[in-house]
Design a protein around this nucleic acid. Structure first.
Lengths: 335, 335
DNA sequence: CATTAGCACTCTCGGCAGTGGAGTGCTAAT
DNA sequence: ATTAGCACTCCACTGCCGAGAGTGCTAATG
């Protein structure tokens, strides 16, 4: 594809992205290519249609990009965008203000990202591949039931109600917890799992302990979203059925988690455009995904869902910013 | 209002609720009042319009209920509906399966309620007016920072990162936690607040402790919602602007919490119909709210948001069911 | 006197034709 | 290779019409 054709494709994508109206040769000539006539552009457009990068809603209409067109655009033509420094500063500041717990950071990230991208933001909980057991506590809730509290690095606390022998009192539970801590402190979930049984520790309790640490190791099944309000502004989702289809996916934690974890971009920025989505329900949408990380061990995914004409460059830049700030905020929680 | 007029109002509400089409005198005569002529019904309808219970989209159209009409309907004409026993059983079963932690119950309640009501479900976190401190733990996260873990009855665990003197090690923290527990164990937030300071306990730590217990005392600021996908099916929300307005409220935690807590029905079932909503953004909607409770001390709000023609009777019955099951599930967590 | 049949009137909605305009593809000239 | 010109296509919009649903009013009825 020669350079002029590329420029024309880029212009069509840009223009359509803004106006959401099929763009014709005259408009292109007037707005982008003062040195070319509309007839020339028409010829190029026609070829771009043949190549599958553009399409027409009907025979005598302007062109709109196909999924393939967007794909070419993001792969080869994406302008490097930056986040305006004042905005950057404001966002950084809001992240500086929360550094207490993981949930708060996830929620702030989702809220910020949906606002910055004008679309729906997705954030998964972090996996911590090297979650280390710091502390174990057992608190008697009522006879026969106790709360197992597992603390791992990264300010991660998980609780779980567990059955215990009815005759145990709080003192005995405390020594049991101390025993657990002495034995397993500093280990990862894998390490605990490999341990032999211990005298005096009910096997059920051991299983629960591992389970608790697992939860800390991977919270990726948690996917939060924010900014559905932005979705309905897009003309492509005026049709209630289309909108509903997308909403059903967004509200189905499990499906959403599967989608995101399948794509899970370990590094860099990933775009999934329209029909590139495995899930049929998302084939009217594009995803822009990246990962956040805190240190080497803790990481998760965050991204944006929007129409296929989403402003990839702008969204990517802002996503990048949020990813970075979020990672930094989480790092501050790690020991 | 005589009995016949009441029946006619009721019939209009029922019919419109189902069909979402203005209902005329002929349809009414044919479907509900075989003993009356359409002309008679027309006279009655005309009076109902004068009284403000009904309105017409245009001069020669059928009638639709006004907010006042719905208000009269729910106050005086609401048929007592029951939840079909098989459905009841299925729902009960799903609640029997989660009894581990509060969050899971809240989420199950929201999911269930949105499905049963075909609308958006709202659930607030529980307030526990008699949250009692069971256990305190301090875990060193890194020098100078520790995790304060507060356990109260009702399987409530709250964590908070706190600053501590840099030179404290885990053993010292543990004894400090033990001291806190000895001193404050069994107290409520109020009780702790009234305590004098204690030798060796940093005042900041005391403040954090109270804060942690406060969080357990009232989690009502947490409002979760589910079932937005159901909202877009309603013809009254085909207009993206209307939909957007409602979504903005639903996604704004803080506003939503204010709305719900202001209404907070301590007992019984509360309907807020259209313009009865203080918040302008919700004036196209109706809320059906009730409270759930676990024991005497723990309670919260749950409800349904839908169009003003929501099926009040049916929704109320199902809301009632979920409220009850949710309360029972939470009770099982309380000591 | 409440009820009802009858009727003229109103308003919406769907279909249809006509029109203007935006945009295309093709051809021939540069 | 580019471009001016032109015929052609198709959509979006408009106005118009008729059918249908529904009303309000009037006069008749038990």
């Amino acid at each position: 594809m020669d350079e002029r054709k590329q420029r024309i494709l880029g212009a069509v994508v840009s223009d359509y992205t803004e106006t959401v109206v099929p763009v014709g040769s005259h408009a292109l000539a007037a707005r982008y290519f003062l040195e070319l006539s509309s007839a020339t552009i028409r010829n190029e457009l026609s070829e771009l249609v043949d190549d599958g990068f553009l399409t027409q809603p009907h025979a005598s209409a302007g062109r709109i990009p196909t999924d393939l067109g967007y794909r070419y655009f993001v792969d080869f033509l994406l302008p490097q965008e930056i986040v305006e420094p004042p905005l950057r500063r404001r966002v950084r500041q809001s992240f500086d203000e929360v550094d207490r717990d993981v949930e708060a950071i996830l929620e702030l990230a989702a809220a910020t990202l949906s606002r910055l991208s004008d679309n729906v933001a997705l954030v998964t909980g972090p996996s911590n591949t090297r979650a280390v057991l710091l502390h174990v506590e057992l608190v008697l809730a009522r006879p026969g039931q106790a709360l197992l509290i597992v603390v791992a690095n990264g300010n991660s606390v998980h609780q779980r109600a567990v059955e215990v022998p009815v005759d145990l009192d709080q003192d005995q539970l405390s020594s049991l917890a101390a025993l657990l801590k002495r034995t397993f402190g500093g280990m990862t979930a894998g390490g605990i799992e490999e341990s032999p049984e211990i005298e005096g520790v009910p096997t059920g309790l051991l299983a629960e302990l591992i389970h608790g640490l697992r939860q800390i190791e991977t919270r990726a099944s948690l996917v939060i979203h924010d900014g559905v309000r932005n979705l309905v502004r897009n003309p492509e989702f005026e049709d209630p059925n289309r909108l509903r289809t997308v909403l059903e996916v967004l509200e189905a934690q499990r499906i959403l988690a599967a989608v995101v974890s399948e794509l899970a971009p370990r590094a860099g920025m990933q775009m999934v455009i329209g029909h590139e989505n495995r899930l049929e329900e998302l084939q009217d949408c594009s995803l822009v995904l990246t990962s956040y990380r805190a240190g080497e061990q803790m990481w998760g995914t965050l991204g944006v869902v929007g129409p296929t004409r989403i402003r990839y460059g702008r969204v990517a830049a802002r996503l990048q910013l949020v990813s970075q700030l979020m990672g930094e905020a989480l790092s501050r929680l790690l020991t």
